[in-house]
Design a protein around this nucleic acid. Sequence first.
DNA 1: TAGATTGTTAATCGATTAACAATC
DNA 2: TAGATTGTTAATCGATTAACAATC
Lengths: 214, 214
Amino acid sequence: MIFKQAPEPTIGRLAIYLRALRTILDSGVSTVSSADIEKITGINSGQVRKDLSYFGEFGRPGRGYSVEPLVNKLAGILGLHEKQKVMIVGAGNLGTALVGYTGFSNSDFELAAIYDNNFNKIGRSLWHLEILDIENMPSINREMNVNVGIITTPGTAAQYAADKMFESGVKVIMNFAPARINVPENVTVRNVDLTQELQILCYYMPKEEIVEIK
Amino acid sequence: MIFKQAPEPTIGRLAIYLRALRTILDSGVSTVSSADIEKITGINSGQVRKDLSYFGEFGRPGRGYSVEPLVNKLAGILGLHEKQKVMIVGAGNLGTALVGYTGFSNSDFELAAIYDNNFNKIGRSLWHLEILDIENMPSINREMNVNVGIITTPGTAAQYAADKMFESGVKVIMNFAPARINVPENVTVRNVDLTQELQILCYYMPKEEIVEIK
DNA sequence: TAGATTGTTAATCGATTAACAATC
DNA sequence: TAGATTGTTAATCGATTAACAATC
C-alpha cells in the first residue's frame, strides 16, 4: 500500500507523541485514545489520528491504541529502532557542551566522536572522547559508520565541515553554525539558529512599557 | 495605519533578511532589490516583498531598497534597537556552554546573569559571571531588568524556573528543557528541543542501504 | 521615455479542523 | 446491543506563489 507523503510538521509531532507514549508506557498504562494523547500533548485528537494515518492503521475503533505496539511503530517510522551514533564537528563551547549534554546520550542517540581542525585541541580528551582530526574523518568513519552529524563550528568553517561529512558517508546533519550549507541530493540538513530564535522571541516582546505612577 | 498581523514564518524570515542585509551593509553596497535578497537567502523575491509589506512600504519601485534604512527598520521591528539583556537558568552543561557561546554575545544580545538552585554551584564563577541563587532572581532582576530568559534546566525543574522568571518580569523565554511550560497571557515561550530535532532528522535518513557488490 | 522593480491582488497550494460512517 | 473511538472525507483556514498595475 502506498501512503501520501507525510508533511514535515507531522514528523515533528510524531516525535512528540513518541515521547508522551514512552512516559505512558513506563507508567504501566496499556491503552490510549487520541483524546488521551491530546490531553498530554495539547495536540488536537483529530490531528493525532490524521498524523498516524499517513503511516498505517494502528488503532481499533471504539478501543483506541495499544501503547507498546504504537511506541514501537513510531520509533520504527522515525528510524530509531537502533541507537543512532552521532558525531560532532567543532570542539568549541557549544560542541563541548553537547558532548556532555545528557539530552543526547539518552536512549535514542549515542555520541560516538568529536572532530576539530585545531592542532591545539586535537588529541585532547573531552569527557569520554578524544578530539579527532577532521582530516581523518573519512577513514575513521569507514570503521565507525556514523550517519548523524552535528556542526558546531564558526559559520566560516561550516561548509568545510559539511563537505567532510558527505565524504565520510554522513546522511543527516544538524547545523548550529549561522550559515547556509549546500548539500548533495541525498543528504538532509536542519538548521538550528539560536540567534534567530532569540530575535524571533524579541519580536513578541511587548514593546510598550506601561509606566507605573506611584 | 493598521497592518494585518504578520504570520510567524514571516518573523523568522525577517531575522534572515536582517542578517543578510547587515552583511551587505558591511560590504558597502547601498541599494538592494528583492531579487538580490533572493539570491543571498534563497527566499523568493515575491515573498520578501510580501513579508516587508506587513510593516510598511520601504522600497521604491524601479529602484529597490536602501540598505541602511532597511536594516534599521528591521532591527526596530524585531525589537533589537537596543542590545537585549539575557539571563540563563540552569548552570549545567548546556547552560555553561551558552554562557561562552559567542553567537549570543554578538551585537544584539548581552548575557547578563546565570542562575541555578544548586548550592554547590551558586557563588562559583563562570567566565565573567557569578552563578546566582534562583531564589534571589526577583530581587536581583528589579535592578537588572532582564527581559529575555533561557531555560537549560532538566525537564523537571523547567516550570519552576519559568515561574521564577514570570515573577521577575521576564517577558520572553527560550526553553531548552524537554518539557512544556505553562505561561501567563503576556509571556511568550519558544521550545527548542534538540532531541526532537535529531529524531526528525533520523526520519529523513534513507532507510534502505544499497549493498554494493564487488 | 523605457526599463526596472515595487506593493498588492488573485490564484494556488498545503495543512488543520470538523464531522461522521464504519466498527470494535 | 449501546457507547466509544477510529480512519477518512469534506470544509476551513492560512501561507506561498504568480502576475501585474503603479511608479520611480
